[in-house]
Simulated assay, not measured.
Amino acid sequence: MIRPEFTVRRTGDRYECADVDEFVDRIIATVSRLATRPVTVAELRGVEFRTPLFSAGYPVHEVDEFLAEAEQWMPDRASAASRQRREAPTFSTVRMRGYDPREVDEFVGRVMATVNGEPVERPVTPRDVRRVQFNPVRLHEGYDIVEVDQFLDEAEDWLRRG
């Protein structure tokens, strides 16, 4: 496995270089089956890195893309994928104020594919779940905000536990 080359930047969303480098080293050792402390799929999905305040760091999107790809190489991926398949939720629709159904459906589709170990172009991380924001719709049918938010809490837990 080749070590990734991340861009280093001083602005924008970024992760602490040392944290990422240490975790990448553990991933490489795990894939090479040389790790004394192997990385699991659950740990890979739930890892969080510090954000540098004033120093340079690696762009969040580059690191997250690498981690999503690295999941395919994990030795325990098969056992994670063989777990019970989770079904996509259904949400009540409301007329006055709800979330845009198209946005929710797209994101929930990615969440379910990630959780169920299916191929997905952009796997979802617990951080993605915490940061997602859907546009509200008014006077059109939208998904019940409380139900969607409750699902997101549950989905974040699924992703953390792997």
Score class of each variant (00 low, 15 high):
residue 1 M to G: 14
residue 2 I to N: 13
residue 4 P to G: 00
residue 4 P to N: 01
residue 6 F to M: 07
residue 7 T to H: 10
residue 9 R to Y: 01
residue 10 R to P: 13
residue 11 T to F: 11
residue 12 G to A: 05
residue 13 D to M: 04
residue 14 R to P: 10
residue 15 Y to I: 00
residue 17 C to Q: 15
residue 17 C to G: 04
residue 20 V to T: 06
residue 20 V to L: 02
residue 20 V to G: 05
residue 22 E to H: 13
residue 24 V to D: 01
residue 27 I to T: 05
residue 27 I to F: 11
residue 27 I to N: 02
residue 27 I to Y: 07
residue 28 I to F: 06
residue 29 A to M: 11
residue 30 T to Y: 04
residue 30 T to S: 11
residue 33 R to E: 15
residue 36 T to F: 10
residue 38 P to V: 00
residue 40 T to W: 04
residue 41 V to G: 05
residue 42 A to N: 09
residue 43 E to W: 08
residue 44 L to G: 06
residue 44 L to R: 08
residue 45 R to H: 13
residue 46 G to A: 15
residue 46 G to I: 01
residue 48 E to M: 09
residue 49 F to Y: 10
residue 50 R to L: 06
residue 50 R to M: 03
residue 50 R to N: 12
residue 50 R to V: 01
residue 52 P to F: 00
residue 52 P to I: 00
residue 53 L to K: 15
residue 59 P to V: 00
residue 60 V to P: 10
residue 60 V to Q: 12
residue 61 H to F: 11
residue 62 E to T: 09
residue 63 V to T: 08
residue 64 D to R: 14
residue 65 E to Y: 08
residue 66 F to P: 04
residue 71 E to T: 11
residue 73 W to K: 08
residue 73 W to L: 14
residue 74 M to R: 02
residue 75 P to F: 00
residue 75 P to H: 00
residue 75 P to Q: 00
residue 77 R to A: 13
residue 78 A to K: 14
residue 78 A to N: 09
residue 79 S to P: 07
residue 79 S to K: 11
residue 81 A to C: 08
residue 83 R to W: 09
residue 84 Q to T: 13
residue 85 R to V: 15
residue 87 E to A: 13
residue 87 E to T: 15
residue 87 E to I: 15
residue 88 A to F: 08
residue 88 A to H: 08
residue 88 A to L: 09
residue 89 P to G: 00
residue 89 P to N: 01
residue 90 T to A: 12
residue 90 T to P: 02
residue 91 F to M: 03
residue 91 F to C: 06
residue 92 S to C: 07
residue 92 S to Y: 07
residue 93 T to Y: 11
residue 94 V to Q: 04
residue 96 M to Y: 14
residue 99 Y to I: 04
residue 100 D to F: 07
residue 101 P to G: 01
residue 102 R to F: 12
residue 102 R to Q: 15
residue 103 E to M: 12
residue 104 V to R: 05
residue 104 V to Y: 07
residue 105 D to V: 03
residue 107 F to H: 10
residue 108 V to M: 04
residue 110 R to W: 05
residue 110 R to A: 14
residue 111 V to H: 02
residue 112 M to Q: 12
residue 114 T to D: 10
residue 117 G to D: 05
residue 121 E to P: 06
residue 121 E to S: 13
residue 122 R to T: 15
residue 123 P to F: 01
residue 123 P to E: 02
residue 124 V to W: 02
residue 125 T to S: 14
residue 125 T to R: 13
residue 126 P to G: 00
residue 126 P to E: 00
residue 126 P to D: 00
residue 127 R to F: 04
residue 127 R to P: 07
residue 129 V to D: 07
residue 129 V to Q: 03
residue 129 V to K: 06
residue 130 R to Y: 09
residue 131 R to C: 08
residue 131 R to D: 14
residue 132 V to T: 10
residue 132 V to N: 06
residue 133 Q to G: 12
residue 134 F to Y: 10
residue 135 N to R: 15
residue 136 P to M: 03
residue 138 R to V: 13
residue 139 L to K: 11
residue 139 L to Y: 12
residue 141 E to H: 14
residue 142 G to R: 01
residue 142 G to W: 03
residue 142 G to Y: 03
residue 143 Y to K: 05
residue 145 I to L: 11
residue 145 I to A: 07
residue 148 V to I: 07
residue 150 Q to V: 04
residue 150 Q to Y: 02
residue 150 Q to G: 14
residue 151 F to I: 04
residue 152 L to P: 11
residue 152 L to M: 15
residue 153 D to H: 06
residue 154 E to P: 02
residue 154 E to F: 01
residue 155 A to G: 11
residue 161 R to D: 12
residue 161 R to N: 12
residue 162 G to Q: 01
residue 162 G to N: 03
residue 162 G to Y: 01
residue 162 G to V: 06
